[in-house]
């Protein structure tokens, strides 16, 4: 990232956020990917690392989208898009799938979010004023996964913070989010306050604080994200 580039240009793209999350998923973990930014994560898990992806509709070992012409309507992900099955993968019912979720067998669920509170409350299924939301599997995953991570844009489309002191939208689950990956920062939810671990290149901790409602704790020094090997900007 060049020093001359403006701050507005140095936000991570959705795919770069997904890439960033994919780098820290560990060998042997069972990980659920929610719709939106998290579904891109499947494309960026390093080849030499076995992370087993869980899809709510009854898949363990979910792989990438197949080439055009090889899509199978019987094999889709949570977003109903075609995927593949990796060697050693398997299929099961939605009841078994959510038994894995509620039973604490999923190491990490990565979800999108509309709002996250400083204590880790998650709101990601309904915008007030809309007549109906779409819950999908979000409430079960937020309540049941061993860790909930959020991958999202740091701000709303009109520039308002999405990390708040208190969520104002209907909750998906209280007190569940542990990590937040955004286009400008990586933040860990701690008992004391949200802890700023990393900023995007071109951003300093004060810039991130301005776009975050609760007071952030800063590690010293806050790391600047290393985007070597990340997908291109466009």
């Amino acid at each position: 990232m060049q020093a001359t580039e403006s701050v507005a240009d140095s936000r991570l793209t959705e795919r770069q956020i997904a890439w960033k999350v994919a780098r820290v998923l560990e060998e042997g973990w069972y990980v659920n990917l929610g719709i939106g930014i998290p579904l891109h994560i499947v494309n960026y898990i390093p080849d030499d690392r076995e992370v087993i992806l869980h899809s709510e509709n009854g898949i363990l070992g979910m792989g990438t989208r197949p080439p055009v012409g090889e899509e199978d309507p019987d094999l889709v992900n949570a977003g109903k898009e075609p995927v593949t099955l990796r060697p050693g993968g398997c299929f099961f019912s939605q009841a078994d799938s959510f038994a894995m979720v509620r039973g604490g067998h999923i190491d990490v669920a990565v979800m999108g979010a509309l709002q996250v509170s400083e204590r880790g409350d998650l709101a990601n299924w309904m915008i007030p004023g809309h007549e109906l939301g779409n819950i999908g599997g979000a409430m079960d995953l937020a309540a049941g996964a061993r860790q909930v991570w959020v991958a999202m844009e740091h701000c709303t489309k009109d520039g308002k913070p999405k990390i708040l002191k208190h969520c104002t939208y209907p909750l998906t689950a209280p007190d569940c989010v542990k990590m937040i990956f955004t286009d400008i920062a990586v933040i860990q939810i701690t008992d004391a306050a949200p802890l700023l671990l990393e900023t995007a290149p071109g951003w300093n901790p004060q810039d991130v604080q301005k776009l975050t409602e609760p007071k952030l704790l800063f590690t010293k020094p806050v790391k600047v994200m290393d985007l070597t090997g990340a997908p291109a900007n466009k």
Binding site: S97, G137, D140
Partner: peptide, 18 residues
């Protein structure tokens, strides 16, 4: 939906399956 001719009961997916 707005006319009340169609009712929607929204259920979390895992709860629905169970």
């Amino acid at each position: 939906y707005r006319a009340g001719a169609l009712e929607v009961e929204l259920v979390p997916q895992g709860t629905l399956a169970e």
